[in-house]
Design a protein around this nucleic acid. Structure first.
Length: 589
RNA sequence: GGGGACGUGGUGCAGCCUGGUUAGCAUGCCGGUCUGUCACACCGGUGGUCGCGAGUUCAAAUCUCGUCGUCCCCGCCA
């Protein structure tokens, strides 16, 4: 075998004269009749190799080569003629004149282009993933992902963290996302669940005294998928003992400062900006806004206290609120109608709007408003004579107003994010500990039930638990929730109180997480941690819209692996062993 | 669970609204010419049951219904 002495990315002008062997894939063939150029590609780069008729045997062989053939060649490195140098590739000053060649394997005509970036449907790319991964874009992303993983591991290793693997086959703990289940052969009728996150294990590791733990952990959630959600994904899972919130935030900031410096060349300043949950909702209407797209929500309630516009006045008299959002886009009535419909589906009573067009203000509610009300509206919204649209929502529930305008704002954020290059990093802290779940008709944990509540709040709002804040935190990067974590409960009594509020009685708690509650009775250090959505983080750094582009073998939005065909049917015997009957209704096939 | 977009030679798209020629373009692929190309160029050629099924019609890529697949969004994702 012609075994390579160099890769296809490393030969330079200083190597001229050397006899080398290269291995790689045939990338492009340029047959000029009397001379034949081939670009030879491997993961390290591309080198031009040349076949000349003076070596007729090899030359004839080269004419038979096709795209994606894998070959080995021996030849001499030579300097290209001055006018034939290619400054676009690092090896562009040289070429290798081939005097011996071995064809390792032939290739069928590839169904997708390997040496071209666009022009391929995602369906094809996933079906022929091995070809897609040969392409520059995917190769770059996977190498970046690897480097980021190495970086993360180094960061934690240097700080005395220990990487410990936690089980993939584990116990289903309802609450949260739907579990993927794995049937147990030895205990027919019972099931393992794949972990949604290693949450309880990492806390148990703290109880075990490991002090500082991290893991690049695979997690599984059986919910519907999106551009930024796959059924299996990777978290950088971190937990530490004998710490308070500040310690955890500080460590996470160090990580992101160094990571962004290394991979983006941007210097973030510590401490990062912080918003409380209430703050960020009041200003942006979202708990993961893009703040560099300014356009904040403005409270207009005081301007309309005395207004003749009954809709506003009624809401305000009942203690409600009126808020507005200004964007520099003159909407058509059709566009506004669609936005209004969408907000109405989310419980908005209506959407009031003003179009600003060359100093003129148009709105269906103009006739109800005084000149001074309009003037102070424009001033408060800081329109500064710009054209655009002001949207206004009024409701008795303050948070509802925020959420509704936040939905609008996020649409404009997305348009902004498509065309701008930016880095927007900040903390959101003091999330509510609990929230009301409409469909379950009960209070549920906002983060998870092991999150430490703010202890003052816990005392003060025993009868109004929705007001209790949690010692939890999210790091938002470019509109994505990239990191999320909390200080955990290390006191069995507080844990019981939280279960109590959640309406989980002792028996139920025991069934679900009895092992964990028991562990809580054997000496628990104060601890806290976080998890980073690693796929999303890599995607943000790589500038990719979809995490599928930073995952080697992703699944479609319906959870199918187009390359392997998973999920697939299994043999009858396999099911019998497991004691499983598959019922497929006639509608299902 | 709901809404939307898309599905046409190997690949990426046009045609569809307003049904009626040989389904068009680009690229690939095959053959030819060409000794300095670099997305080689030029000439010639190959290649399509228009996702699948049913319906309407004298006639369906085109209209209708269903179905499958991919993508986007809502719900969901502690």
């Amino acid at each position: 075998m012609l075994k390579r002495t160099h890769t296809c990315g490393e030969l330079r002008i200083s190597d001229v004269g050397k006899t080398v062997i290269l291995n790689g894939w045939v990338d492009r063939i340029r047959d000029l009749g009397g001379i034949l150029f081939i670009l030879l590609r491997d993961r390290y780069g591309i080198t031009q190799i040349v076949f000349e008729p003076s070596n007729i045997e090899v030359y004839e062989m080269a004419k038979e080569l096709g795209p994606e053939y894998v070959i080995g060649i021996r030849g001499k490195v030579r300097k290209r003629p001055d006018e034939a140098m290619n400054p676009k590739i690092p090896t562009g000053e040289i070429e290798v004149i081939v005097d011996e060649m071995e064809i390792f394997s032939k290739s069928k005509i590839p169904p997708i282009y390997v040496n071209r970036e666009d022009d391929t449907s995602e369906e094809m790319r996933m079906r022929y993933r091995y070809l897609d991964l040969r392409r520059e874009g995917m190769k770059k992303n996977l190498l970046l992902r690897h480097e980021m993983a190495v970086f993360v591991r180094n960061f934690f290793n240097e700080r005395d963290f220990v990487e410990i693997e936690t089980p993939i086959l584990t116990k289903s703990t309802p609450e949260g996302a739907r579990d993927f289940l794995v049937p147990s052969r030895l205990k027919p009728g019972r099931f393992y669940a794949l972990p949604q996150s290693p949450q309880l294990f990492k806390q148990i590791l703290m109880i075990s005294g490991f002090d500082r733990y991290y893991q690049l952990a695979r997690c599984f959630r059986d919910e519907d998928f999106r551009a930024d959600r796959q059924p299996e994904f990777t978290q950088v899972d971190v937990e530490m003992s004998f710490v308070e919130r500040e310690d955890v935030l500080d460590l996470a900031e160090d990580l992101f400062v160094e990571l962004i410096r290394k991979f983006k060349g941007i210097e973030l300043e510590k401490p990062f900006r912080r918003f409380t949950y209430v703050d960020v909702m009041e200003r942006y209407g979202s708990d993961k806004p893009i703040t560099v797209f300014e356009h904040e929500l403005k409270d207009l309630s005081d301007l309309f206290k005395e207004t003749d516009f009954k809709v506003f006045r009624n809401v305000l008299e009942k203690g409600g609120v009126v808020k507005g959002l200004f964007v520099e886009k003159k909407h058509t009535r059709g566009e506004i109608g669609k936005l209004e419909d969408e907000l109405k589906r989310k419980g908005a009573k209506g959407l009031v709007w003003f179009i600003l067009d060359g100093g003129e203000v148009r709105s269906p509610v103009m006739k109800f408003l005084s000149e001074s009300e309009v003037r102070s509206l424009l001033e408060r919204m800081e329109t500064k004579d710009r054209d655009g649209t002001i949207f206004m929502v009024a409701d008795e529930e303050r948070m509802h107003v925020n959420e509704l305008l936040g939905i609008l704002r996020s649409k404009f954020e997305k348009e902004f994010a498509e065309k701008e290059d930016f880095l927007d990093v900040f903390w959101v802290i003091d999330f509510p500990m609990f929230e009301w779940s409409e469909e379950e008709g009960r209070i549920v944990a906002n983060h998870h039930p092991f999150t430490m509540p703010n202890s003052e709040d816990l005392e003060r709002y025993e009868d109004d638990p929705l007001k209790i804040r949690a010692l939890s935190y999210d790091l938002v990067v470019n509109g994505y929730e990239i990191l999320s974590g909390s200080i955990r409960i290390h006191d069995r009594k507080i844990q019981e109180k939280v279960f109590n509020i959640l309406g989980i009685d002792e028996k139920e708690a025991k069934e679900r997480f009895g092992f964990f509650l028991e562990a809580l009775e054997y000496g628990v250090p104060p601890h806290g941690g976080f998890a980073i959505g690693f796929d999303r983080l890599v995607a943000v750094i790589a500038g990719e819209r979809s995490i599928r582009d930073v995952i080697a073998f992703p699944k479609t939005t319906s959870g199918v692996d187009l390359m392997t065909g998973a999920p697939s049917e299994v043999r009858k015997e396999q099911l019998e062993e497991l004691g499983i009957d598959v019922k497929i209704g006639s509608d299902d096939l």
